[in-house]
Structures are given as C-alpha cells and as structure tokens.
Design a protein around this nucleic acid. Structure first.
Lengths: 134, 134, 134, 134
DNA sequence: GTGGTCTAGACCACG
DNA sequence: GTGGTCTAGACCACG
C-alpha cells in the first residue's frame, strides 16, 4: 500500500501532494488497478492533515478516473497512467539509478539532479517543437 | 537572461514557479552571480502575472540570499547553488539526455520520467538512511 | 495578546512597524513561544490596514523563524529573541523607568530620549570597536 | 560636522534615515544653529546614495525650518529641536550611559535595550493619558 | 525606468 | 473562521 508523506513547508498544497504521489505510483507501477488506497482516517493520522484535505485529493483522483470510492469498503485504484512495458520500465529504472550514482559521486544534490532533468526535458521539448514546425 | 514561463493550471503557485525556475537555472549554471533577472515589469507582461506576484518571488529569492534587488537598477544574482564542476555537469547532462532518449523510445512520457527519477531518488535516500543508521 | 498600532504618518512602512512590535514584545518577554498573534483579519480591522500588509509582516517573521502560521488555526510564536533573565530584565526596566522620570522632569521629550539612547549606544559601539582593534 | 550613515537593508527609506540623523544630532546638541551639513556631493560618495536622495532629505529638513540652503555656500542648521539645558543633558547622558553599562553586563543586546526603552516610554504615555483623563 | 508598499477585494486551502 | 495567493492599479523611493 502506498505510503503518503506531506511536506508542510512546501508551497504545493497538501492535497496536491497526495494526488501527485498517487499519480507517480501509478506511473512507476507501484500502484495497480484494484489496489486499495489508505483510508482517509489513516492518512489523517499518518500525515497529520485534516480529513477534508484527504477527501479533496481522493475526489480529484476519482474525477480523473484513477480511483473509485466504494462506500464502506475504501478507495481503490481503477485506472492506469503510462503504458510502458514493466520490463522495459525496470531496465530504464536500473540505468537511471546507475546514472544517479555517478551524479552523486560527482557531488550533485537532489535539487541539482532534478534541475538537470527539468532542463534536459525542456531542451528536448524545444527540439521536438522545432521539428514539428519544420 | 532567464526566460520565465508560468503554468496557470498547475497547483504550484505562480510565484513558486518563478522561484523554482531561478533556483534550477542557478543549479545548472544558466544563471550566474552578477546576471540580471528580468525586470518585474517585463515578467508581468511576458507571463501575464501581477507585479506583486513577481515581487513575492524575487523577495523570497532575496531573503534566501540568492539575488539582490537594487532599487532603480534591477534585480541581480548574488549567490550560487550547487557547486559541481561545469565539465562534470555537462558530461552528466549528456548521459542523462541519452537515457531520456531511450526512455522516450520506450514510450515514456514526461510524467513517467519524472516519477521514475523521484522514485529512484527516494529509494536512494532510504538506502543511505539505513547505512547511516547501521 | 499583543496589541498592534500602526502610525500611518511614519516613514517606516506599516508592515515593518508590525514586525518591529512583535520583535520588541519578544525581547521584553511580553510575547512567548506558543502565544498566538492576532489573526490577520483582526489586525486588518483594528489597525485599518490591508490583509496583505499583515501577511507580509507575518511572513517576514515566519521566515526569520520567530512565528509559525498554521493554516486554519492562526499564527503562533515559535522562537525567542534575547535571552536575559526576566528578573534582571525587570530590574533594568525599573532603573530605566526612574531615569526616564528624571529626563521628563528636565523637560526632555520622547524624541530627545530616543536620540540620547541612540547616541550613547553608538558611542559605546565605537569604544568597543576601538578596544577590539587594540 | 555630522557623519551620515545609511543602512540599505533597513526598511526605513534612505532619505528618512538622513533626516532622522540630523534631527537626533539637533536633539543631543551635536548639531547647532550655524553648523554646516555635509555637501550633497560628499554624502553621495560617503553613503553611496543618489544626489536626489540627499536633496530630498535636505529639502524636508528645510521645509520643517531646521536647515537653510544657501546657494553656492552649502546647507546650514537654522533651527533647534529640544530645549533642555546642555548641562542637564550631559548629566542625563552620563546616567543613561551607566545604565547601559549595567544592561550590557547583564547580556542585553542593542535591540533588547531599544525594546525596553520603547516599552517604558509606552507605559509612561499610557499612565499620563489615564491621569489626563482623570 | 526600476523595485517597493499598499489598497480593495476575489477566491482558494485547511481545520 | 484562519492563513495564503492573486489581480488591478495607485503611488512612493531611488538611479
């Protein structure tokens, strides 16, 4: 079962952090259709947030068709995100982990690594736009 | 000069997006001490945000010692973030770009890629915590 | 609870006056960790300022670690300033009050008294600098 | 001749800092009618401010009748503030300096001392208001 | 022309 | 009800 964590000092709203964590888990396959999400009550105690915050996150996930609340039973994953082959995913994950190891050895911090990926993705998008226009 | 963009549909507040973009540019070396940030008014027109939103972002950067506002003159980078050797940074960027190429070929979307990195970073941190405790 | 007052004719910005009053209250022990600050809305009505002005003050105090805003709950003192023994503080306060009485009898106004203290502090600092250099 | 200093990190505008310093010097007798203020040019270089900032301060002092600009000659003190006997003033200054010595020994910082005076003055004012009303 | 303060007021996040 | 973000826009401080 997914293990939520909420960073109160972040400028991202708490409910959005929960939504993002579910989406990420769906992307990397940690969460699959049929899996149960933590109960609202358990998130309230583990993350010290208000029930309405959790409800807002779950409602947003439900509206995008990713989860389904079953009265009295709990909230369950009902959709998927990303469709890559799990084996390919595992391979890519491995090579990315190796890359991260090198980055760490070179002294890069988490924020450096994230900035680098953001930059490479952005550059990539710019390139494709150009090609698309050409 | 850095080129801001604000995604209004994001749950990340506009001012926080600006802050993050400056921090990322400092991380990857696109922005260096002495460089001028866009004037408040230019960001207002280019990103169609309110002056106070830009000022809030610039003020937060100033309080963390990264930029310096000189009244009547502009806002200038005055600090650094991340201290990796630019050559090493360039090499790592290159290998990450190649990895991204493979990921794209395998059908991964931006959100997949970001989720993967977040997951690998998290796993890595957990490992190091364990080692630290041992 | 601290009672703010804002002097609109002062050249000190309203938000800075609020910040200063909190800092002074922390110094003299009127405000202690755990105490709640007035709600943003109550300051708005009592001092007839704008919510953003109060928020700016509270945010600055929060960034310097002196208070903590809990959304939906209020803003609370979370830090301290000055560490003098309350008893010593009370004694010094008493002798200063007596001194002020004499000053008033001699016809000194508030501004005279403040100027005198500023001057004595400055002289004192100059002396210590000299000693430090010697 | 008065020696200006401008704290750029203060929230008090630069021009207001200059005005305040002249007023304080008049209060404590450091500056007397007939004394010359520094030339605009010299303040510009010593405090690295813009000529217009100095001019604004001098103009404000002139409007309140405290100084007089003589074309081609300079700016001169033409008024007074506070009317205490210099000998009394010197005596009060001495006792305040002794009090400050005790405060310093007790570990109080500048900000503590200023907060204490502000508090004692405020209390005093409250008392007099009550008496006035009675 | 550049940054900074502030108002009046809408609307959101959270408890 | 509490803090937080944001807009539209006036006006000030400074170079």
């Amino acid at each position: 079962m997914i293990n939520f964590h909420v960073d109160r000092s972040s400028s991202v709203p708490a409910y959005a952090q929960l939504v993002r964590q579910v989406r990420e888990a769906l992307r990397i396959g940690t969460l699959r259709p049929g899996d149960q999400l933590p109960t609202v009550r358990s998130v309230v105690t583990s993350c010290t947030v208000n029930p309405t915050t959790v409800l807002k996150a779950y409602r947003e996930l439900e509206l995008s068709g990713l989860v389904e609340a079953r009265q009295g039973a709990g909230t369950f994953v009902s959709g998927t995100l990303g469709h890559a082959d799990p084996h390919v995913m595992a391979r890519l994950r491995g090579s990315l982990a190796r890359w991260l190891g090198q980055a760490r050895e070179a002294g890069l911090e988490d924020e450096d690594v994230q900035a680098l990926l953001a930059s490479v993705i952005g550059e990539n998008a710019a390139l494709r736009n150009k090609e698309g226009a050409a």
